[in-house]
């Protein structure tokens, strides 16, 4: 048994040597917000944070996450009634289409804004081009990131 900390909660999981974190999160911990898209670090659908850093959970061995803080989309909202600024921006821009890629998109966007609260278009492209959206909502994802960035600026300047 391996112990993982996901969204601040302890989980006892069976992590055989090579099982990627993605499948443990989804199947053993029942957190299905993190998606499977490609399995080879090509699409970003499986993005989670390890100690705040975005990683592709489909190629991250579960055992390597032991002792780290794992955050998934389910852990983004600060509490039950409040969404994360980025999630809120996503709703305001009516960003998701099918929605399947959006957990990964939001995880990448949050990581970007944590590093760089006011990214330029090019910086957004660079940070987000690892996340595929087959519904092609790139324009809206970008607008939502900018909206979230603006909200961050105004809340920190208060």
């Amino acid at each position: 048994m391996t112990s993982l900390t996901i969204n601040g909660k302890e989980y006892q999981v069976d992590a055989t040597a090579d099982i990627p974190l993605l499948w443990v999160i989804r199947e053993q911990c029942g957190l299905t917000g993190t998606k499977f898209g490609c399995g080879i670090a090509q699409c970003g659908a499986c993005t989670v944070h390890l100690d705040g850093q975005p990683v592709r959970s489909c190629i991250t061995p579960a055992i390597s996450a032991e002792g780290k803080n794992i955050t998934t989309i389910e852990g983004m909202a600060p509490d039950k009634n409040t969404l994360h600024i980025v999630q809120q921006a996503w709703i305001e821009e009516q960003t998701p289409q099918c929605g399947y890629c959006q957990s990964g998109q939001i995880m990448s966007a949050v990581a970007l804004l944590n590093e760089n609260p006011s990214p330029s278009d090019e910086e957004i492209d660079a940070a987000m081009s690892g996340n595929i959206c087959r519904c092609g909502m790139y324009g809206r994802i970008k607008s939502a990131i900018k909206r979230a960035s603006a909200t961050l600026q105004s809340s920190t300047s208060l």
């Binding site: 989804r26 299905t32 969404l83 996503w90 709703i91 998701p96 929605g99 939001i106």
Partner: peptide
């Protein structure tokens, strides 16, 4: 606002792959 969007930003939206 579309009905289907809020659940798609929180991870709650259930796709075929997510069925348990």
């Amino acid at each position: 606002p579309r009905f289907d969007i809020p659940a798609k930003v929180t991870g709650e939206a259930q796709f075929g792959l997510d069925v348990q």
